[in-house]
C-alpha cells in the first residue's frame, strides 16, 4: 500500500509575493516518488540538492508550489489536515540540541503526546515504551545537556515515536554526530523499522547509511536522478561520480578493478561482500 505519494512536486520559496517578479528557480523540480508502509527508504544527495526540502513536504511543514503530496491519502495542501498528517509522520531534525524542549529527558519525550491531549497514564506508558525502544530508559531523569550527541538524537527520536506515528522522517539525523553516535542512531532507526514496523524515510549524504536502506532515491539539483535498491543505485558509479556523490569504498574498489580488466560481474556494497568477491577473483 502506498503510504507516501509525491506527484510532480515543484517547490520554490518566495511564493506569495505577488508584486515581485516570480522566481523561476524551483528548489524542487518535477519530483515524483511513492513509499510503501513499512519501507526503509533513503533519500541521498549533496547539500543544497533539495533533499531536506523534500523532507519538510512529508509532514506538511512545506506545501507544494505545484504538484501534490499525499500522506496516507491525505493531501498536505489541505491545512485542515496538517495536524493529522503530523500525527502520522514525525520529523526528526539534524541538530539534536535544538529540538529538545524540556529540561528533563522523560518530560521532553512526553511533549508530543501531551500536545495530542492523551490521558496522563497513557502518556507515561508511551514515554517509557519509547525510551526503552531507543535504549535511553536509564537516562530518563537526566538533563539533555548532560547527554552525548547520539543520545540526544535518540531522545529526539523517542519524542517522535511516543506520538505513535506510522512513519518517521529523519533529516540528516547523523550529520552532527561522531562515528559512535552515528552507529547508535542508525541501529535505533533500523530496530524501529524492523520490530515496530515503522516506515522510515532517512535523508542523508552518508552513502554507508544509504546502502542499508530497502530503497534509495538520489536527488540532485531538485530533481530525481535515479532510484532503486541500493545495488541498482550504487552500481551506477559513473552517474553518481558525475553528480559528485560518493560510493562506498568497497564498491569503488571493485568498479575500478573492473575498469582495469579484472573480471568482476557485480559490484558489492559491503565490506564482507567485497572481501568474499575478491577472494574468489584473486584465489
Amino acid at each position: 500500500m502506498e503510504f507516501i505519494k509525491i506527484e510532480n512536486l515543484f517547490f520554490r520559496y518566495d511564493e506569495g509575493e505577488e508584486d515581485q517578479p516570480k522566481n523561476e528557480n524551483y528548489v524542487i523540480r518535477d519530483l515524483s516518488l511513492s513509499i510503501n508502509k513499512g519501507d526503509f527508504v533513503a533519500i541521498v544527495g549533496h547539500n543544497g540538492s533539495g533533499k531536506s526540502t523534500v523532507a519538510k513536504h512529508l509532514n506538511a511543514m512545506l506545501i507544494p508550489s505545484m504538484g501534490k503530496v499525499y500522506i496516507d491519502g491525505m493531501d498536505t495542501a489541505d491545512e485542515a489536515l496538517s495536524y493529522d498528517i503530523r500525527r502520522k509522520v514525525g520529523l526528526v531534525l539534524q541538530n539534536p540540541d535544538n529540538q529538545l524542549v524540556a529540561g528533563i529527558v522523560e518530560e521532553d519525550v512526553a511533549f508530543g503526546p501531551e500536545n495530542l491531549g492523551i490521558a496522563p497514564d497513557e502518556i507515561r506508558e508511551r514515554v517509557d515504551e519509547a525510551l526503552k525502544a531507543v535504549d535511553m530508559y536509564e537516562h530518563r531523569l537526566k538533563a539533555p545537556h548532560k547527554l552525548s550527541g547520539g543520545q540526544k538524537q535518540r531522545v529526539a527520536i523517542a519524542g517522535i515515536i511516543a506520538m505513535k506515528p506510522d512513519c518517521i522522517v529523519l533529516d540528516e539525523p547523523t550529520a552532527m554526530l561522531d562515528p559512535k553516535g552515528r552507529q547508535e542512531v542508525l541501529d535505533t532507526i533500523h530496530k524501529l523499522n524492523r520490530e515496530n514496523g515503522i516506515t522510515v524515510v532517512m535523508i542523508t549524504h552518508y552513502m554507508e547509511e544509504a546502502v542499508t536502506a530497502d530503497k534509495v532515491y538520489v536527488v540532485d539539483d531538485g530533481r530525481l536522478l535515479t532510484s532503486g535498491t541500493p545495488y541498482e543505485v550504487f552500481s551506477q558509479v559513473e552517474l553518481l561520480k558525475k553528480h559528485r556523490l560518493d560510493v562506498p569504498q568497497a564498491t569503488e574498489l571493485c568498479y575500478k578493478l573492473r575498469a582495469c580488466g579484472v573480471k568482476i560481474d557485480r559490484l558489492p556494497l559491503f565490506e564482507n561482500e567485497c572481501c568474499a568477491l575478491l577472494r574468489e577473483v584473486l584465489a
Binding site: P248, A250, L253, C275, L278, A283
Partner: peptide, 20 residues
C-alpha cells in the same frame, strides 16, 4: 579503542589474511 580503519584498509587486510 573503538576506532576503525578505513574500509579499504580493512578489505585489503582481510585479503592479506587469506594469503594474498
Amino acid at each position: 579503542m573503538s576506532l576503525r580503519v578505513p574500509q579499504i584498509t580493512s578489505i585489503v587486510d582481510s585479503l592479506i589474511e587469506e594469503g594474498i
